[in-house]
Design a protein around this nucleic acid. Structure first.
Ligand SMILES: [Mn+2]
Ligand SMILES: [Mn+2]
Ligand SMILES: [Zn+2]
Ligand SMILES: [Zn+2]
Lengths: 137, 137
DNA sequence: TTCTAGATTATAACTATTCTAAAGTAATAA
DNA sequence: TTATTACTTTAGAATAGTTATAATCTAGAA
């Protein structure tokens, strides 16, 4: 399955028509060989830079939300100023460099498995994620 | 040292005069026997409910920021919609109940110690905190 | 008591996000 | 094809959490 087919599948599966704008968003999000972290504003700038065209924020927000709902991207809580997203949708941990405002994936092999010895009645664990804040040393 | 003396000390140490409003904020934040988590809006409502008087949001924000800067309270990243704060300033982990929008402290004895086997050049670790998201089971 | 630096407050400004509604486009049926 | 329709894009308005402003007030020192 080539990229374009894959993008169309992702969009259709998210209940969205494969429009020019949405395919560009897919291109930026899913065609690199590495996953990455982004804010909506950063994504908007990357799109302009890569395709020399601007996509309205409304469309970017809409598409990102649809992909979030389907699990094609995930949201990372780092601060309350703006939302950060991740094209790596596996459950994983992060370093957060507060100076550069940058997230870095931590591979599972780099952390001893986290074990929680407590249950909350009526609740089950949905995800377990570390945020390791960094400062200049 | 009684509460009032303690509050005045905290305020002075934060570079703030002990005014009526700020002492009320201290009362709510620091006189209970348990620590707790709050958003600014929740704090504002608790103050109204406990003291039957309203303190302007500007004053609440200012005071909370000053206390943050001195480490008398800390900020917890759970989502990007609003800031959450914690009167438990020790480094500790949290459950986050997304349905109730509620944070619950996890005691260190309830988690195996987290061990990170990776260094980022020029950076040192400032804090290591887990966010364990819960869903209804 | 007087004086003044600092505090309180209502409200304006700011910014990330969501909403709106007019104009445009993709899908499909004829 | 072409026509029809439902969906999409977009600029800009609205919203909400937060921060800034500036007029009024007050704690603390003299
Ligand atoms: Mn930031
Ligand atoms: Mn906001
Ligand atoms: Zn990641
Ligand atoms: Zn806590």
């Amino acid at each position: 399955m080539d990229n374009s087919t894959n993008f169309i599948a992702k969009l259709r599966n998210s209940g969205l028509r494969p429009t020019k704008q949405r395919l560009k968003i897919c291109e930026v999000l899913f065609s690199g060989k590495n996953t990455f972290h982004f804010s909506i504003n950063e994504l908007s700038k990357i799109i302009i830079q890569k395709t020399n065209e601007k996509i309205s924020l409304a469309t970017i927000y809409n598409t990102v939300h649809a992909f979030l709902g389907k699990g094609y991207i995930k949201q990372i809580a780092v601060n309350s100023e703006q939302s950060y997203y991740d094209t790596n949708v596996s459950e994983h941990h992060h370093f957060y460099d507060e100076d550069k405002n940058q997230l870095i994936d931590i591979h599972d092999s780099e952390v001893e498995p986290v074990k929680i010895n407590r249950k909350i009645p009526g609740k089950k664990i949905k995800s377990i994620e570390l945020l390791v804040k960094l400062q200049n040393s």
